[in-house]
Every structure is written in C-alpha cells, then in structure tokens.
C-alpha cells in the first residue's frame, strides 16, 4: 500500500514538473501551421484601426490575420527583419509586414504592384497623431509568411 502511495505521488510530482517545464519552454506561435483567426483586405484592416484604434487593438492584436492587397514596396533596410508594405486607401497608411530573415528570397521575388496575400500576427497600429514627424501610420504584422 505504501509503495503504491509513493509511486502515485512520484507520478504526480513528475507530471507537475513536466507541465511547468513545457509551459516555460513553450514555443512561439507557429504562424505557418496555425489557422488564421480572420481574413480581410488591407483596406479593411487599416480602416478598422484608423477609425477606432482602441477597439481594433482589443479585437485584432495578437490575432493571426490573413491580409490581401497590393504590394506598395519592399523595405529591406533592416536585415534582422525584412519588411514589405501593402497599400491601403490612405496615401500615408500601410500594412507593414515583418518577416524572419530566412524569407528574404521570397520577398525579393515579389513584384511591386502585384496582388499578394500575407499571414502574420497583428501587433497594432504604429504612428501617433501627437508626434508631427510620425503622423503616417502602419498596421503592423510580425512573423509574417507569404501565402500568395
């Protein structure tokens, strides 16, 4: 009887330790293999944030989003995170998608003004009306991958 009790307690302790270890070392969200929470156009996503930033941040930040639109430009100035800009209906508003450096070749193959589809984790709206030098705005996606 005593042996069974000791064995049971050992299993429970081991289970707890394993759970804590796995929680502590859980991986980052795998965008490639995780289903998107929502799919929309770049214009729709930007408009949500531009119209009501607080509500859009609550609704869409940290969500995996598939965004479709027309490629405005590539921004490869930071080799640690190559980025692309997707057009919206605002001249100074874009969807800014950041990629892991290993996707650089895929980005280089993109043609400007082509229609693309990108999946990434939405981080929010960067830019601030109170900062006159930074009044242009980007809805930011991170850990992005190209779908089309």
């Amino acid at each position: 009887m005593r042996k069974i009790t000791i064995l049971s307690i050992s299993f429970i302790v081991l289970g707890i330790l394993l759970f804590v270890y796995r929680m502590f070392n859980k991986p980052h969200t795998d965008v490639l293999n995780t289903k998107a929470n929502v799919e929309m156009t770049a214009i729709e996503l930007f408009t949500y944030f531009d119209t009501n930033e607080d509500s859009a941040t609550i609704k869409y930040s940290d969500q995996i989003i598939v965004v479709s639109g027309v490629l405005h430009s590539k921004d490869l100035s930071n080799e640690l995170e190559p980025q692309i800009l997707i057009k919206t209906n605002e001249d100074d508003g874009f969807i800014r998608c950041g990629f892991k450096p290993e996707y650089l070749n895929n980005i280089n193959s993109l043609k400007e003004s082509s229609t693309i589809k990108v999946k990434g984790i939405c981080k929010g709206l960067n830019g601030d009306d109170d900062l006159e030098l930074l009044s242009d705005k980007d809805v930011v996606l991170s850990s992005s991958i190209l779908i089309e």
Binding site: S61, D62, N78, L80, E81, Q83, R96, G98, K123, G124, N126, G127, D128, L131, E132, L133, L134, D138, V140, S142
Partner: peptide, 26 residues
Amino acid sequence: DNHKVKTAFSAENGKIQFSCLIKDFE
C-alpha cells in the same frame, strides 16, 4: 528586441521622435 521602430528627426531644428509597439518586442 523590436525591429520596427518608427522614428524621425528634423535636420533644421533637431526635433526627434520615436514610436514603437510594445507587443512587437520579441
């Protein structure tokens, strides 16, 4: 690290501004 920091400065008057998203720190 955050690699998508928006920042600008004016060469005329030296004004410098930064904006970054907290959720974008990896």
